[in-house]
Nucleic acid binder design. Structure first.
Ligand SMILES: [Mn+2]
Ligand SMILES: [Mn+2]
Ligand SMILES: [Zn+2]
Ligand SMILES: [Zn+2]
Lengths: 152, 152
DNA sequence: AAGTAAATGCAACAATGTTGCGTTTAAGAT
DNA sequence: ATCTTAAACGCAACATTGTTGCATTTACTT
């Protein structure tokens, strides 16, 4: 479906800034930090970007997750997403080397039994290590500074 | 072992503030936010508290974790702790109602196979829901504002 | 008891996120 | 096509969380 229409379908105006952000998140399937998005879209105001991400999250277009440093990141919601709690269904991977974070849409969060009187509502699973790109680059002793397209 | 000696064994001076913080973390086995500790120890300077927690973490006395809000929390390291990466061995539970966070020392993080060229170094498992106390209080429609001792 | 490196307290700064408000604009109605 | 208006934007100001520099104090060694 058209990006403009997807934004409008959530009751939001399809402004240029929103189209840019949504297109990028859709394209790369990665979880972006605020800093990463600011660097990508230098002409979008910092506050506007905060509000766009908040609006997208409330609308269920994106989900918010935290990386291993506790920094906030945003990623697109898959088309079969059940709404704002989408992030809880799948596992995330954070690369220690390049810092990028991936939504592993195909990997569901595991089942865990915990003792005591806890009532479980959901869980977050964050795996860390090094991504495919960084594995290869480490082997070749090359720099790992570029952010490139990845589909997981 | 004596608290003073445990702190000294890591090459740190056993100051009054450090003894207070370490004793509390040892007693409750919970993961405390900075705000919770500040409220508990009003006479400890804010910056000093930051430095105490950083020093404890570097020394392997405590581990740092993030809760469902992305807020930083600190918890004691178990006596059989392998050092700074202690937090990665066990599961954490964050109560949606009272906000408290528990170290489930007895619950190991699960094994997960992920596709692609990712090299896994470790994982964080954060479960959320409501704790035993809040379950009971919800049933009885009572307030849930008190922080009390819990051993998990 | 004295000496010294470590720790503390305070102020200033930095990073991240929020709020208020006047201006601009997207999208529906005419 | 133009008008209308609620929504979105841009900017400044503020709030929260965490860090750094430095003068003073204190825990531990001798
Ligand atoms: Mn995701
Ligand atoms: Mn823990
Ligand atoms: Zn990488
Ligand atoms: Zn609770």
């Amino acid at each position: 479906m058209d990006i403009v229409q997807q934004i409008r379908d959530k009751g939001l105006k399809a402004t240029p800034a929103r189209q840019l952000v949504y297109a990028e998140l859709t394209r790369s399937h990665m979880a972006y930090s605020h800093a990463e998005l600011e660097a990508l879209f230098l002409d979008i105001d910092r506050v506007t970007l905060y509000r766009i991400l908040k609006d997208f999250e409330d609308a269920g277009l994106v989900h918010k997750v935290f990386d291993t440093q506790g920094s906030t990141r945003f990623a697109i919601c898959h088309h079969t997403c059940p709404g704002k709690h989408h992030a809880e269904n799948h596992v995330h991977f954070n690369c220690n080397d390049c810092g990028r974070m991936f939504c592993l849409q195909a990997v569901q969060t595991p089942e865990i039994n915990i003792p005591g009187g806890f009532r479980v509502a959901g869980m977050h699973t964050l795996i860390y290590g090094s991504c495919e790109k960084c594995n290869q680059l480490t082997d070749k002793n090359e720099p790992t500074d570029k952010i490139q397209e990845v589909i997981v």
